[in-house]
Every structure is written in structure tokens, then in C-alpha cells.
């Protein structure tokens, strides 16, 4: 999975979410639209937050929704959803969220490369804002493609 080659189906811009649950559902729906997961995976991503709290908000404005590998994951994939209005997830420092990523993987071993790529992108503190403000899916792909090497 290469971040700069994500298909249009998994990138949703300017969606409206009433609350965090809605926001996770939007990201899960994008995974389903891209053929990455089934609806059951979306529910499991919601359950992770219900069980463990808003820790998926891993940086200011950015949530990484995810759940364990399972039969509801068709293949490894990532979805990107930007929100028209930021939504609170309940994180003490990083709320409100304006970009929701949803990650699905088929095994615990295979996803390290994509996460290293994500770290390369989002270690740049302007990346979340750039994606939140992107007007086209091409712009989102361009930001995701700017994985800068660790200095």
C-alpha cells in the first residue's frame, strides 16, 4: 500500500460528522467503499474507542481509527476523511479532530511499512492542517506522498 496511490474511493473531503462516532463511521464507510473492509470492521473501530477512550487522537486534530485484524478486513488499506467542522473525541490535548484516518490490516506483521510512511508524513506538524484544507483528492495524495526521510 503506497500512500500517494490511495484510490479516490477512500478519500472523502469535507464530510459532516455530528460526533466522534459519526466521524469514525464516515472513515469506516470509506474503507468499505474502497473494498478494504466490511461494515463489521467499522463497528469494531467504534468499539475500540468505546472501550479504551479517545487515545486514537494521536496528534492535534488527527485521529487514527483502527481495530485488530479480522475476517472483516479484505486487504490492507487506509482511508482519509476530512471534516467540514472539527469534532471532539474527548482527548485531553489533541481535540478537536479535523482529519480522520482509518487503518485496516490483515495481519499484525504486514503494516509496519505503511505506519513508518505515515510517521514520515505526519512528523511534519503542518501535514494535518494541509490535508484538512485540501480541496481535491489529488492534493491529499500529494501531501501523503511527501513522506520526508527522517533527518
Amino acid at each position: 500500500m503506497r500512500l500517494e496511490e490511495l484510490p479516490d474511493e477512500v478519500i472523502v473531503l469535507g464530510a459532516h460528522a455530528c460526533d466522534w462516532r459519526d466521524a469514525v463511521h464516515l472513515a469506516g464507510d470509506a474503507l468499505v467503499a474502497g473494498g478494504v473492509t466490511t461494515d463489521a470492521y467499522t463497528e469494531r473501530m467504534v468499539q475500540v474507542v468505546e472501550e479504551f477512550g479517545a487515545y486514537i487522537v494521536i496528534a492535534p486534530g488527527l485521529a487514527l481509527a483502527h481495530a485488530r485484524p479480522g475476517p472483516d478486513v479484505v486487504h490492507d488499506g487506509l482511508a482519509v476523511v476530512t471534516l467540514d467542522e472539527p469534532v471532539a473525541f474527548g482527548h485531553p490535548h489533541n481535540d478537536p479532530v479535523e482529519v480522520v484516518l482509518a487503518l485496516a490490516v490483515t495481519s499484525n506483521e504486514g503494516h509496519v511499512t505503511v505506519l513508518a510512511d505515515l510517521a514520515n508524513v505526519f512528523n511534519d506538524p503542518t501535514a494535518t492542517r494541509s490535508i484538512a484544507q485540501a480541496a481535491t483528492v489529488g492534493r491529499v495524495r500529494a501531501v501523503l506522498g511527501q513522506a520526508r526521510p527522517e533527518p
Binding site: 487515545y55 494521536i58 487514527l64 485488530r68 487503518l103 503494516h111 505506519l115 510517521a119 512528523n123 527522517e150
Partner: peptide
């Protein structure tokens, strides 16, 4: 450490390795 053992904890691992370096 993370709730699901994938995703967020893997990002934390990658960046902690960079910090240790």
C-alpha cells in the same frame, strides 16, 4: 502500548526508535 496493538502503537514504536537514535 495501545488498545488494539496495531496502528497507534506501531507509530509510537517507529517514532520512539527515531527519538532513541
Amino acid at each position: 502500548f495501545c488498545g488494539a496493538g496495531i496502528g497507534t502503537s506501531a507509530i509510537l514504536k517507529v517514532n520512539a526508535e527515531r527519538a532513541l537514535a
